[in-house]
Design a protein around this nucleic acid. Structure first.
Length: 573
RNA sequence: GCGGGAGUAGCUCAGUGGAAGAGCCCCUGCCUUCCAAGCAGGUUGUCGCGGGUUCGAGUCCCGUCUCCCGCUCCA
């Protein structure tokens, strides 16, 4: 069922439906659009508001330990210095000239340093005990520039070369895997005070002055490359610099800076005005208000602050409809806990948040948790688990739950000079709380709810398209449909419509055939249709038709509201 | 930014240098009866933009803009 359902929905179909029915439009479309910006149409804004309302209800209204906040988008510029965004949120990027892949300059490693080539190695210096263990360095290749080195490499001579790494690597993590000419168990690893020399036989054809490339995997699993010139006198060779493409070891372009924070100016005269940023995350608005909330609401640990709001990131690469946009909306919680209880609360929030999606109708098998490897964590995080959804283009992150430790509060205390500690009355001491941050994307959630709800089923020669949205999320809860446009049905239909619309978003539609109107409501996800027919004029009863099963029940008009209410709260149809 | 794809009706798309089209959608009318029904009508186009070639360009050439997908990161 799942595989089938997923295979039915494609981004193209969904994008088309969204535009056709008024969920989501490309931004500024009459001017040709603006990349990666979208506008929520009449139905989209309802869905999005419902998603936010369900979240707010779940994490604020129904909890004792949470309060809300709505901080401004523009904040004091120092905020972003303290948070690390000014320094750390500008990505220098490089492109590989060979394979065209793009990398963060940080990720491609730093130059290895000098290379020495020896003309002779005394076998007694071999330190086989240092060759070892877990696989981190892999020497994969050595080439002679300007030729396809292979023929010359077949008869490796007795001469040995060495690579001198400026960055020493732990011995226990060093492994030389020599499945080609380069390495054999006899290869030599010289430990040095601050570096290693890895010995290897030079190809016999490598003449004095030959240009060599050494390519190997570094501890992160990325390729690194050293270019050097053979000098049999034992001297230090020329070092070509780097780094190189971690994927193919091709040459990279110069790093280019991309600032991921949108800048703007406070003050009407631009060149005298102060630079401020559009916030790249809502979280900092919570941290800077920690003391205000604490003082005004008399909270005790553990407690949390929830916020929904726009955030802006000048992404280099956007795309995938509303999944990755430069302007987006977040639903964030900063949940403050006593240090030591952070691991437990972290897990509780992961469970809590996962259940939220499931309770709103997303199939569990289309969700998964992804725990970040410790060495991939952001600088502020001790732990991080993503909630991922199986979108048509693959598993994609909807929400990240991070253990941010006390990093943010300490940073803001330091930069602002204010005391952001919490007085623990149990232990009579001041502590800086740890914080668990469940941070969800509104737009991504909307997309996931739409994708998961989208269904097609055969209907004679046609296909019935249904958005099986949870009633709490559906933009229109009820459609009121007179069976025909006959005037006699009008007064009662209007009466029912006007009564219901005081409770829910209701649509009135008398155009075209009843079947067509049902299908239209199915396609926009309306869970219930109420039909007024000629019998209604006599018996004061109407028909409720349910979206998913297309089943119908007849109820007295006076029982209509409570019946619909019960059905929307999950009573079986 | 690099690579690929695409711009023709609200949507999906066809269109061979010679009158801008189809299906769906939408709207109006008829119908006393329940799942995109039928019948009769109807609206909707700077063919992305600007040049050029040509008697004639949606079609060929050049330029340009925009959007989509992938590559990095993240909500």
């Amino acid at each position: 069922m799942t595989e089938q359902a997923i295979s039915k929905v494609t981004m193209d179909k969904l994008v088309s439906l969204c535009k056709r029915r008024g969920y989501i439009f490309p931004s500024s479309e009459i001017y040709g659009g603006l990349g990666a910006c979208y506008d929520y149409g009449p139905l989209g804004v309802e869905l999005k508001n419902n998603v936010k309302a369900c979240w707010w209800k779940s994490v604020v209204q129904e909890r004792d330990d949470m309060v809300g906040l709505d901080a401004s988008i523009l904040m004091h510029p120092q905020t972003w210095v303290a948070s690390g965004h000014v320094d750390g949120f500008a990505d220098p990027l490089v492109d590989c000239k060979q394979c065209r892949r793009r990398w963060r300059a940080d990720d491609v490693g730093k130059p290895l340093g000098a290379v020495q080539v020896y003309d002779q190695v005394d076998a007694s210096e071999a330190r086989a005990d240092l060759l070892p263990a877990a696989g981190q360095i892999v020497i994969r290749n050595i080439k002679i520039d300007g030729s396809n080195g292979a023929p010359q490499l077949e008869s490796a001579g007795l001469v040995a070369g060495g690579i001198w790494l400026d960055r020493p690597l732990p011995k226990s993590e060093v492994q030389l895997i020599g499945d080609d000419f380069l390495l054999s168990p006899g290869n030599i690893l010289y430990p040095n005070l601050r570096s290693y020399t890895i010995g290897f036989p030079l190809p016999s054809g490598a003449a004095l002055g030959a240009q060599l490339k050494l390519v190997f995997r570094n501890p992160s699993g990325l390729l690194e490359r050293v270019d050097f010139t053979v000098q049999f006198s034992g001297g230090v060779t020329k070092y070509e610099g780097g780094p190189y493409c971690p994927d193919c070891c091709g040459d990279l372009t110069e790093p280019r800076m991309f600032n991921l924070m949108f800048k703007t100016y406070v003050g009407a005269v631009e060149d005298e005005a102060e630079v401020v940023y559009l916030r790249p995350e809502t979280a900092q608005g919570i941290f800077v208000n920690f003391e205000n909330v604490l003082a005004s609401t008399r909270r005790k640990l553990p407690f949390g602050i929830a916020q929904i709001g726009k955030a802006f990131r000048n992404e280099i690469t956007t795309g995938n409809f509303i999944f990755r946009t430069r302007e987006f909306e977040q639903m964030e919680i900063e949940y403050f806990v006593k240090p030591g209880s952070d691991d437990e609360w972290f897990q509780r929030w992961v469970d809590e948040r996962l259940n939220w999606y499931v309770n709103l109708g997303i199939r569990r098998e289309n969700l998964r948790l992804h725990q970040h490897a410790k060495d991939k964590l952001a600088h502020y995080a001790k732990d991080c688990t993503d909630i991922e959804y199986l979108l048509p283009m693959g598993w994609s992150e909807l929400e990240g739950i991070a253990n941010r430790t006390d990093f943010d509060l300490r940073q803001h205390a330091r930069h602002s000079g204010k005391d952001l500690s919490y007085y623990d009355e149990d232990t009579k001491e001041h502590i800086t709380p740890y914080v668990i941050e469940p941070s969800a994307g509104v737009d991504r959630s909307v997309l996931a709810f739409l994708v998961d709800a989208y269904d097609e089923e055969p209907d004679k020669d046609e296909v019935r398209v249904v958005l099986r949205l949870h009633p709490a999320l559906a933009p229109i809860k009820v459609a009121v449909l007179p069976l025909s446009k006959n005037e006699k049905l009008l007064p009662l239909s209007q009466e029912v419509y006007n009564d219901l619309r005081r409770c829910w978003m209701v649509q009135y539609d008398n155009a075209q055939s009843i079947g067509r109107r049902y299908r239209r409501q199915d396609e926009i996800g309306t869970p219930f249709c109420v039909t007024i027919d000629f019998d209604s004029l006599e018996d004061n009863a109407v028909t409720i038709r349910e979206r998913d099963s297309m089943k119908q029940i007849r109820v007295p008009i006076e029982a209509l509201k409570p019946t619909l209410d019960a059905k929307m709260c999950g009573e079986p149809f």
